[in-house]
Amino acid sequence: MATEATGGGLEFKPMEQFEVKALFGETVAWYTPTNVTLWLFLTALAAISLLVLGSRGRAIVPSRAQSVAELTYGLVHKMIEDIAGKEGLRYFPYILTLFLFVAFANLLGLVPMAFTVTSHIAVTGILAMAVFVGVTAIGFIKNGAHFLDLFWVRSAPLAVRPILAVIEVISYFVRPLSLSIRLAGNMIAGHAVIKVFAGFAAIAAVAPVAVVAVVGMYAFEVLVALVQAYVFTILTCVYLKDALHPSH
């Protein structure tokens, strides 16, 4: 590893935590259960237990778990309604799935010794590509050729429109890239920083500072985990709005 530094037993391996390992055996084929598989399943389990077990009581006056489930439901529901409008609510279950998946993957990744599935570009890339392909398909199905109005800015002077169209097309195709890299980058950066600070704890003189820094970064990362899930979902809603109402 390029960041390896050997001096006084100081060792930085901030990227080691992201390695994909098979749970049983050595080789990683496409079907092998790996640590990715394990944490993906734990993520799904956590999301399901929040929403399904939480709402099991079906009480008019909700229990604590049920209120959390309802708040999550309400948050995503309101987000779609505010941004994409009533038509967007058709896609509510998928957007809720995305939000819960990203939020729980981020949060579970902060458990010590855990593996963060959303720190992998393969995972976030698929999430972003699913949103991109899905939204583009919805745009063309709902609006037909009018969907291309998204790139043809009618409010701008005619001479500027072709230039704007090029910029709009580029920014449209950058969307899945920025969506996936934002999430993965945030996760990688946060976890790597925590690991680096933890590495400094090997030096006795700076160990207390390092421990305080790790605690502070950890708290910050909890916030980032939730904010990134929120941002991923809200951007999905924005893209969905563009697909449903392409004219500016």
Partner: peptide
């Protein structure tokens, strides 16, 4: 607040891109 978060996300994404460039250079 939603607009705030979208704006922050866009501003932050470009910083993350530079982080990505760093990672690519390193590894």
């Amino acid at each position: 607040t939603a607009t705030l978060f979208i704006g922050m996300a866009f501003a932050e994404a470009l910083g993350i891109f530079s982080f990505l460039v760093a990672l690519l250079l390193m590894f």
